[in-house]
Every structure is written in C-alpha cells, then in structure tokens.
Amino acid sequence: MKQIIDFVPLLLFFITYKIEPTTVAIAGFSLGVGGIFSATAVLIASSVVIYGFLFVHQRRLEKNQWLTLAACLLFGGLTLGLHSETILKWKAPVLNWLFALAFFASHFVGDRPLIQRMMGHAVRLPAAQWSQLNVAWILFFLVCGFANLFVAFVYPAIWVDFKVFGSLGLTLLFMAGQALYLVRHMQPEPEES
C-alpha cells in the first residue's frame, strides 16, 4: 500500500503535465494549468500533502520517503524558481543514484546489507544471498538512474511517459525477478520444540 501512496504525486504530475497548457481565472487570479511547470507545482504540493499526512498518521517517515520528499522540494523548487525543466530531469537519476549509494554503503556500514535490514524480518536467507540481493538493488538503481537520464536528454518528448510508466515497469520487472530469487534461496523457519 505504501508503494501505491508514493506513486500518487507522480501520477498527479503526469496528469497535470498531459493537460493542454491553458490559463484559468480563479477568483480574479490567472493560473497556468498544464505543461511541465504547473505539473512540477502539483508534484511539490501533492508530495508535501501526502508525506505530511503520512508523517502525522504514522508519526514518522521512512528514510527513503524523506529523501524522496527532499529531492522533490529541491529539484522541483529549483525548476520553478529558475524556470528550467532541465533541473527536474536530473531528479530521478540523482535520487536513484543516492539509493544505489545507500545500498552500496551498507556493505561497509553496519552489520547487515540494507536489503536485509529492510526485509530480514519477513524473509530468511543465508548471508551470501543477502549480499547478492543487495548488489542487485545497487545495479537496479544505477540502471534506473542512467535510463532516466538517457530518456530525459535523448528522447525528451517521451521523458514524462517513461518517468511514470517506464520506471514503474522496470520496478515491477525487478520485483518479479527478486521474488523468484527469494523463493529459490529462502530458508525454512526453524521448528519450535
């Protein structure tokens, strides 16, 4: 459910981006709707509302949610402030690479790889498989970052479509591969005497 909630701002960004740019008068104010800049404003506002709601409801946000919110505010704010969509195009690659860095650093900081810290309560694997799975996540985030960067600057006409649906498709494929890997290597629960 949390993953679906995390996609709501991105979905609202996509819908707003696809609206034909127009100006709407509301209470005597002119408001531009549609296109990259209003979509960025919607992304920022919806992220603040959704993560704010989650924070109030759960009394905390996960580290990846804080990082996502911070990247949204930083890159989105700079995009609007400098009126440059190029800045927003760097958000997904940088965020993916930061996640890759976190997974990489977990091999050297702490007693377990990051993926084991995240999933160890639900899945039992030998230590070597946790390390392999962690490396797979590092590679996944690196590939996603480079794929987003490539599409954003080589195929800018489909960048938003790829950002929403291509990234989601890559994630679902990776998760399916991870599920197959986990099923193959899971250890049975120890029997209680």
Rank of each mutant, 00 (worst) to 15 (best):
T68L: 02
K163Q: 05
F75H: 07
G81K: 08
L142W: 02
Q65Y: 01
A147N: 14
F37C: 13
W130F: 11
L170M: 15
L69Q: 12
M1A: 06
T40S: 10
G76Y: 00
G28A: 03
Q129D: 12
G52Q: 08
A71L: 10
L12N: 04
G34E: 00
F150M: 10
L69G: 07
F75K: 03
S193T: 09
S106Q: 05
N134P: 14
T23W: 05
L12H: 06
R184W: 10
K91S: 02
F104H: 03
M186F: 09
V56H: 15
P9E: 06
E189R: 14
V123Y: 04
C72F: 12
L139G: 12
I36P: 07
M118H: 05
S106G: 08
S106D: 07
F174W: 02
F153Y: 15
V135I: 12
K2I: 05
N64P: 02
L54V: 11
V123C: 04
L95T: 10
V143N: 02
S167I: 10
A176S: 13
L82A: 14
L80N: 02
T79N: 05
F174H: 04
S131E: 14
W130K: 06
S167F: 05
V160Q: 00
R60M: 10
A179F: 03
L125C: 07
T40D: 02
N134S: 15
P9Y: 01
F146L: 14
H57A: 07
I4T: 12
Q65C: 04
V123E: 04
H83R: 08
D111C: 06
H185Q: 08
F146E: 11
A45P: 09
R124I: 11
I26H: 03
V49W: 12
L125R: 06
E20R: 09
V143Q: 01
M186Y: 12
L98D: 01
W90Y: 10
G81S: 09
N148I: 12
F146D: 05
Q65T: 05
I36N: 05
K91T: 04
V24Y: 03
F104K: 02
G81P: 13
F14L: 13
A100Y: 01
I4P: 08
M175I: 09
T16I: 08
P190A: 04
M1G: 11
R117V: 03
Q65S: 07
G169V: 14
Q129R: 15
F141L: 05
K2S: 05
C144K: 11
S30C: 06
R124D: 07
W90N: 02
T86Q: 01
A25E: 15
L98G: 03
I4E: 01
V123A: 07
L172M: 13
H83D: 03
L95I: 15
L73K: 09
L74M: 08
A128V: 15
A71Q: 04
